[in-house]
């Protein structure tokens, strides 16, 4: 193999190591990006929506209590506002929740929501039926169950947020490690490469120079043993022929 090829191969190997490490780090960093998107796009959005749903439920509860007090207009207004706030949050959570427990909670919410809406629209929800006893038995229980389901969804998202964040730490570590491994590997390779270049290129050149000098100065025979079958051996052979010719 020619010296040029050998030297090129050495640097090519270094380049391969760096490219592979860079590619792996790149892939890991892009995965970090995906994880961050997931945190912001799904979990955080759902946690906010759950909070919105809780506020909505609270408003609906207040609305019913106002109606019970006889403040019909304020009560209906609060109830309507609460219902709209809840629906807004519910629509976000409904589309993003894929977890089985979360889906069960969504299902439960849907059932209770339609029951609450029916109650609100029904003629039963009037001055005669709207007593404190009725409140504790019907709307209060419904709202309590719904609040529990919303908190379940919120917890699922909080847990997912925590685990994804923890995963981010691990991913960041993974993205750095190929770089560290390559730096160590490169240092080792450079040490070996330098040793080999020194042993197979520099030392033979120095030996050729010394023998050629000896041959010229003192007329000693030019005799150098070159282990590699490359340009250095050809050079030694040519010098040998030349010195033999001169002598």
């Amino acid at each position: 193999m020619k010296i040029r090829v050998k030297i090129f191969a050495g640097f090519f190997i270094m380049a391969i190591l760096m490219i592979v490490a860079g590619a792996i780090s790149g892939i890991e960093f892009s995965r970090i990006g995906i994880s961050i998107n997931r945190i912001l796009g799904e979990n955080y959005k759902n946690i906010e929506a759950s909070n919105q749903m809780l506020v909505g439920l609270e408003k609906q509860n207040n609305g019913i209590l106002l109606i019970l007090q006889g403040q019909w207009n304020d009560g209906y207004e609060e109830l309507e506002d609460g219902s709209n706030t809840f629906i807004k949050g519910y629509n976000i959570v409904k589309n993003d929740t894929l977890d089985a427990v979360g889906k069960a909670s969504i299902q439960s919410l849907e059932t209770h929501l339609s029951a609450l809406n029916m109650m609100k629209d029904s003629t039963l929800f009037n001055q005669q039926t709207a007593t404190l006893k009725w409140y504790y038995e019907k709307p209060y229980r419904m709202i309590t169950v719904m609040r529990h389901e919303v908190k379940t969804i919120q917890k699922i998202n909080q847990d997912a947020l925590y685990s994804t964040s923890t995963n981010l730490k691990e991913r960041a570590r993974r993205a750095i490690i190929p770089g560290i491994v390559v730096v160590v590997a490169l240092l080792m390779f450079i040490a070996i490469f330098t040793y080999l270049v020194n042993h197979f290129f520099v030392n033979p050149l120095l030996r050729i120079k010394d023998r050629a000098t000896d041959s010229l100065k003192y007329g000693r025979p030019f005799d150098v043993n070159i282990q590699t079958n490359d340009e250095l051996k050809s050079l030694a052979d040519v010098i040998k022929k030349l010195t033999n010719k001169n002598h």
Binding site: I13, I16, L17, I192, L196, V197
Partner: peptide, 22 residues
């Protein structure tokens, strides 16, 4: 990725002595 990178590293280190050492 871990296995691919490791195998490339080992193979590259394995091949390189053959380029230089007779």
């Amino acid at each position: 990725l871990a296995l691919f990178f490791s195998s490339i590293l080992a193979i590259v280190f394995g091949v390189s002595p053959y380029i230089f050492i007779p």
